[in-house]
Computed example of a mutant assay.
Amino acid sequence: MIRHLVLFKLNEGVERDDPRVVKGVEVFRALKDKIPEIRFWELGWNLSDRPIAHDFALNSAFDDTAALRRYVEHPEHQAGVALWREFATWVIADYEF
């Protein structure tokens, strides 16, 4: 299994209630029902107020790297990424478990 972690940081001046952010979260929340390769899917807002903390997290799992690649390339995922690109940056980690 491959764990896919993504930590998002909202751009300066962008708040959680920004309509673009709300839409981005909705789109990502819905991916679990649209992409069959997803085996585990959870996401949510960070509760920490530490300066080094990111704002939003996505924790997911896939059977193997081929399934992860299909997810990454899936049009529904790409549409979500395009939305998030407008208001956030992110870091990822993919590892076997």
Rank of each mutant, 00 (worst) to 15 (best):
residue 1 M to G: 07
residue 1 M to I: 14
residue 2 I to E: 04
residue 2 I to V: 14
residue 3 R to F: 12
residue 3 R to I: 11
residue 3 R to Q: 14
residue 4 H to A: 04
residue 4 H to L: 11
residue 5 L to E: 12
residue 5 L to I: 14
residue 5 L to A: 13
residue 5 L to Y: 07
residue 6 V to R: 00
residue 7 L to G: 06
residue 8 F to N: 01
residue 9 K to T: 10
residue 9 K to D: 14
residue 10 L to T: 05
residue 11 N to A: 15
residue 11 N to R: 15
residue 11 N to K: 10
residue 12 E to H: 12
residue 12 E to L: 09
residue 13 G to S: 11
residue 13 G to F: 08
residue 13 G to Y: 15
residue 14 V to I: 13
residue 14 V to L: 07
residue 15 E to L: 11
residue 16 R to F: 14
residue 16 R to P: 05
residue 16 R to Y: 02
residue 17 D to A: 09
residue 17 D to K: 08
residue 18 D to L: 08
residue 18 D to N: 11
residue 19 P to Y: 15
residue 19 P to E: 14
residue 19 P to Q: 07
residue 19 P to T: 15
residue 21 V to M: 07
residue 23 K to Y: 05
residue 23 K to E: 13
residue 25 V to D: 03
residue 26 E to T: 03
residue 26 E to D: 15
residue 27 V to A: 05
residue 27 V to E: 02
residue 28 F to V: 08
residue 28 F to I: 14
residue 28 F to H: 00
residue 28 F to T: 04
residue 30 A to C: 11
residue 30 A to R: 00
residue 31 L to D: 01
residue 32 K to T: 07
residue 32 K to Q: 15
residue 33 D to M: 06
residue 33 D to Q: 12
residue 34 K to A: 11
residue 34 K to Q: 15
residue 34 K to W: 13
residue 35 I to G: 00
residue 36 P to I: 08
residue 36 P to S: 15
residue 36 P to N: 12
residue 36 P to W: 06
residue 36 P to F: 08
residue 37 E to F: 04
residue 37 E to A: 07
residue 38 I to K: 02
residue 39 R to Y: 08
residue 39 R to N: 09
residue 40 F to A: 13
residue 41 W to R: 03
residue 42 E to D: 14
residue 43 L to S: 03
residue 43 L to V: 05
residue 44 G to K: 10
residue 46 N to W: 01
residue 48 S to M: 08
residue 50 R to P: 03
residue 50 R to I: 06
residue 50 R to L: 12
residue 50 R to K: 10
residue 51 P to S: 14
residue 51 P to H: 13
residue 51 P to F: 13
residue 52 I to G: 12
residue 52 I to D: 06
residue 53 A to M: 10
residue 53 A to V: 09
residue 53 A to Y: 11
residue 53 A to R: 12
residue 54 H to S: 14
residue 54 H to C: 09
residue 54 H to V: 09
residue 54 H to Y: 10
residue 54 H to T: 12
residue 54 H to P: 04
residue 56 F to M: 02
residue 58 L to D: 00
residue 58 L to F: 06
residue 60 S to Y: 03
residue 61 A to K: 11
residue 62 F to I: 01
residue 62 F to T: 02
residue 63 D to T: 07
residue 63 D to V: 10
residue 64 D to Y: 13
residue 64 D to P: 07
residue 65 T to E: 15
residue 66 A to Q: 13
residue 66 A to S: 06
residue 66 A to G: 08
residue 66 A to E: 13
residue 67 A to G: 09
residue 67 A to T: 05
residue 68 L to E: 07
residue 70 R to F: 10
residue 71 Y to V: 02
residue 72 V to D: 13
residue 73 E to D: 05
residue 74 H to P: 03
residue 74 H to C: 09
residue 75 P to G: 07
residue 76 E to D: 14
residue 76 E to I: 03
residue 76 E to S: 04
residue 76 E to C: 05
residue 77 H to P: 05
residue 78 Q to M: 13
residue 79 A to L: 04
residue 80 G to E: 02
residue 81 V to A: 02
residue 81 V to I: 10
residue 81 V to S: 01
residue 83 L to K: 01
residue 83 L to N: 02
residue 83 L to A: 00
residue 84 W to M: 01
residue 85 R to W: 08
residue 86 E to T: 10
residue 86 E to P: 04
residue 89 T to S: 15
residue 90 W to L: 04
residue 90 W to H: 15
residue 90 W to F: 09
residue 90 W to K: 07
residue 91 V to M: 04
residue 94 D to S: 07
residue 95 Y to S: 08
residue 97 F to I: 09
residue 97 F to M: 10
